[in-house]
């Protein structure tokens, strides 16, 4: 199953693009064009992999106009032997002065068979801009887990608390409707253990 979309922002103003994956799609491709001065996009990705689900995610954001903004935040949680393959490109052309781009991709590996690949790329041909990206890939923080368990909360529950905490910074920015849908899915999954 594939999602392939092209988004062209032709006017000033912010557009919110949620990308939510719970294992169904195998490929997600977005080409986003910030074509007009002042165009701005906020991409919020919530990814939750279980079983053997894998997904190739490609997001290309093109800043083709001055004063365009892109803010991309992806958080992925991978259980069992699921994996995410992420390629993100932010391209700022010459003349796109005053543009701001930020890309963050964070993956949490919950099992010893889960895997992640993240390649956040930047191609910048204009100097009067600000761009940055950050990626972290790792497992649940041992000390945070220890702390929660030291209060009597069992391992699985503590882990899920941390997973929810990890995703919260993205989830809390989604629309109310989507927030509940996502929280429900996660709770459903958590109940398998608890």
């Amino acid at each position: 199953m594939q999602i392939k979309k092209q988004i062209v922002l032709n006017k000033s103003g912010e557009v919110l693009l949620p990308i939510i994956w719970f294992g169904k799609e195998k490929e997600i491709i977005y080409d986003i064009y910030l074509a007009e001065k002042g165009a701005s996009i906020k991409v919020l990705g919530v990814f939750f992999g279980t079983g053997e689900s894998t997904v190739d995610v490609k997001v290309n954001i093109y800043h083709n106009s001055p004063e365009t903004t892109s803010h991309f935040l992806l958080k992925g949680v991978l259980e069992d032997s699921s994996s995410i393959n992420f390629d993100g490109l932010v391209k700022i052309i010459k003349g796109a002065k005053g543009s701001i781009a930020w890309l963050g991709a964070y993956l949490l590996l919950l099992s010893n068979a889960s895997k992640g690949r993240a390649v956040p790329s930047l191609e910048i041909a204009e100097n009067d801009i600000k761009a940055g990206h950050a990626t972290t890939i790792g497992k649940v923080n041992e000390l945070e887990l220890f702390y929660l368990m030291s209060r009597g909360i069992p391992y699985e529950k503590s882990k899920m608390l941390l997973v929810e905490g990890f995703l919260s910074s993205v989830v809390n920015q989604l629309s109310k409707g989507k927030q509940s849908a996502v929280k429900e899915r996660i709770a459903e999954y958590a109940n398998n253990f608890i």
Binding site: E144, Y147, S150, G152, G165, L167
Partner: peptide, 21 residues
């Protein structure tokens, strides 16, 4: 967690921050 449930408590010197919880 079992130690905690049996009644042991540690007040940490540097309590860790757990964002989002």
């Amino acid at each position: 967690d079992k130690k905690a449930k049996l009644g042991l408590f540690l007040g940490f010197q540097y309590p860790v921050e757990v964002p989002g919880v």
